[in-house]
């Protein structure tokens, strides 16, 4: 065997650095998964349209529910939906298109704020609740008191005691709902906390706060997205429901529920007045729900394998 049949190969520095596993980016996969659903894309477009309209349109129209409008001009009353008034006008000549978007803005704002507050508090409390047994003993008793009482009852009584208004409603909704978010997170944390990598972490002396934020929190992203996806439509429904009963937003604030209530006597004589706000409320809630659910599914890393 002669030596010249072999040549020395230079060691490739960059090849040794190369990792054989396929490239994986969590958020990229989430979005790829999300946009693979056509229904979700359509619903997302509807959501975007609703959000943009509800922000921009009230700014242009400057709708104010206290404004008497064309109350004395009878020709402006009860105009059926047409090009000039896409949603028609009501019994005092108000443009319903303006009213619907102003109401939508308030509904969305309330739902978004209530979800944000209850999720942030709920996740923070829930993580420590799930991790520490001492906190658990105390919190589970608090939870038993709060969770057993119908949410509707608490919100109604609170809004009543605080007085109707946007911030009061947000407070009433988030003051009790954070605990159910926290409970939800607690269960998830309890499942994850005793896995081997966390045991190892504990043995190496990692402080609890670091284990919670670095080891457990990333696992919870999809769980949190699921909870948010469920909360936003339910808060929208709640606002509509409470305002309809007359215990939510007062008469001075535009709201879809209030409109549905005010116009329900016209269900037969001028059905568009009643059904249009109801349909808009349903459309908002359904589109947010579907987008949220799809996003929640997509944010679960298990779905990224295919």
């Amino acid at each position: 065997m002669s030596e010249n049949k072999f040549t020395f190969v230079q060691m490739k520095e960059d090849a040794s650095e190369h990792i054989a596993a396929p490239q994986y980016s969590y958020w990229k996969s989430v979005f790829r998964q999300f946009f693979s659903s056509k229904v979700a894309i359509v619903m997302l477009l509807i959501v975007l349209f609703i959000v943009i309209m509800s922000i921009v349109h009230p700014m242009i129209s400057g709708y104010d529910p206290r404004d008497p409008g064309f109350i004395n001009d009878r020709s402006m009353h009860y105009i059926w939906p047409c090009l000039e008034f896409p949603f028609g006008t009501d019994n005092v000549g108000k443009n319903l298109f303006d009213a619907v978007w102003a109401g939508t803005r308030n509904s969305l704002f309330i739902a978004a704020m209530a979800t944000l507050i209850s999720t942030v508090i709920g996740v923070i409390v829930g993580m420590f609740w799930g991790y520490s047994k001492k906190i658990d003993v105390f919190m589970i008793e608090v939870y038993n008191v709060v969770a057993n009482v119908p949410f509707t009852l608490i919100v109604m009584v609170l809004v009543y005691a605080l007085g109707g208004g946007i911030w009061q409603l947000i407070f009433a909704m988030s003051v009790t709902s954070w605990i159910s978010v926290a409970y939800f997170i607690r269960v998830q944390v309890m499942i994850i906390r005793d896995r081997e990598y966390n045991l190892a972490s504990r043995c190496l002396g990692t402080p609890v706060s670091k284990i919670v934020t670095h080891n457990i929190l990333p696992y919870l992203v999809s769980v949190i997205v699921t909870s948010v996806a469920r909360d936003i439509p339910s808060y929208i429904s709640y606002e509509v429901f409470l305002s309809y009963l007359g215990v939510g937003l007062g008469k001075d604030v535009a709201s879809l529920g209030q409109m549905i209530q005010t116009y329900s006597p016209y269900m037969l004589s001028a059905p568009y007045m009643f059904w249009l706000p109801l349909i808009v409320a349903a459309a908002i809630s359904v589109s947010f729900y579907i987008v949220g659910q799809t996003l929640a599914d997509a944010s679960d890393p298990k779905t990224h394998m295919n």
């Binding site: 439509p233 429904s237 509509v240 529920g257 409320a281 947010f288």
Partner: peptide, 14 residues
């Protein structure tokens, strides 16, 4: 099920 959960109960009842 999704329809019922997503729809505001008010809308469903009406």
């Amino acid at each position: 099920i999704n329809f019922l959960i997503a729809l505001p109960s008010l809308a469903f009842i009406f």
